[in-house]
Nucleic acid binder design. Sequence first.
DNA 1: CGCGCCAAAATCGTATGCAATCTTTTCTCG
DNA 2: CGAGAAAAGATTGCATACGATTTTGGCGCG
Lengths: 237, 237
Amino acid sequence: MNIADQTFPAVDSANEDRAQTIRDQLRDAIVDRRLAPGTKLSEGEVGTLFDVSRTVARAALQMLSFEGLVRTERNRGAFVANPSPEEARQVFASRRLIEPGIAIAAAGRMTPAHVVAFKAQLDEEGRFIAERGPNARRSEIKASGDFHLLLASVAGNTILQRFMEELVARSSLVIALYGRSGISSCGHSEHMNILEALENGNSERASALMLHHIDHIEADLDLRVRSGPALRQALES
Amino acid sequence: MNIADQTFPAVDSANEDRAQTIRDQLRDAIVDRRLAPGTKLSEGEVGTLFDVSRTVARAALQMLSFEGLVRTERNRGAFVANPSPEEARQVFASRRLIEPGIAIAAAGRMTPAHVVAFKAQLDEEGRFIAERGPNARRSEIKASGDFHLLLASVAGNTILQRFMEELVARSSLVIALYGRSGISSCGHSEHMNILEALENGNSERASALMLHHIDHIEADLDLRVRSGPALRQALES
DNA sequence: CGCGCCAAAATCGTATGCAATCTTTTCTCG
DNA sequence: CGAGAAAAGATTGCATACGATTTTGGCGCG
């Protein structure tokens, strides 16, 4: 899975920040696994693919490295992150700490409009689960994460929202690497239960369900170390 | 308070990442208020001051903008962030959610070495409080934040640690803007109480004390909006 | 056939140049 | 004298250039 094989939507309406656009597209590609962990992301290739100079490509990669989706090594370049089991545990520990609180905050701010948005979100999620094919699989992964991001946006704290964006994205990487069933969709019904609690303003229940949900996702992981922790990340790619 | 008036330690042993070094120095300057909120940070000036090209200065400013310490506007440049009351509330809401959990994690991982480090930290804090003069004031602000960062490092989760670094830094900005007593040192005895709970492995108490501590800091703020929310950030600087 | 060594190619880190945009100053006209 | 427009200056966004470092691809030798 080389980055050169990827195709990206033309870098559309472009008077605003192009580095940000590129970052978003690369993040999507990483999150829904079109780019495997360890893949080299060279400035030149990224620049060529998006038709910008290395300067801009580099800025986009720097952003992704702040989010922990990309690891950069001096004089060697950028690679799609390859989280270790320890990092994986930390990602989920962070989510266990933050997301129940987000659920509580969101429960107190739900409006009918929010409910509609959630229903649409869960519908889409269900549709992708029913479909077959790798494309549906990718969309399903994305939709599953989007549920959590929607929740974070309802909670109304932009700082926590950004933290969650990072954690959800990194979770996708972790699941790609360590997931047993390979898919995180196991949680669709749990998402529905959480929504129900939110709808009823039952913040305690929403919070508890969220905690269990995260535990279930993590329980699907196999975090035993295989080889040495690095070996230069299995030769990178 | 112009950036050109600032002096920075020579950009020392420098084969490794210079942008990162510059970011750290600028962050320190922002956190201990040598650079006031709203101050313009032009790429050229930063570059000249640290004796690097605009390319590197720009990268450092981009990093700070990710941390929320600097706000960048397209074609206008970078400014020390000027958090609104709403942002201020979000910073503290985030800390209330995260830091009690960090305290619990840290309580379970305290070693005698950690205790020594905390004691040294609190000593330093106390010394700066006793001293007079703006330099001691600055050191005091930094030391107060460092207590929280030390706690985060003991907790052993690098992701949460980074989140806390961001939140502590932004808190300093918020206190600079909205603090009544101007100083956050009010919490020195609270820090000592928290350490005591940590030392005894009393995680529940440490967590509760931390929550109260954050509440006390926030209670010292005056978050009433003064004028319109922006007016282009009071003409920037 | 495998292994180390050296040159060639690729890639990165950084400085610099240029056009576009924003800011400031100056000038004009009411 | 003040308001608005035009010009000059400063600053940013981005591309490109070049030395430094890393990777790759022989090539000889054991």
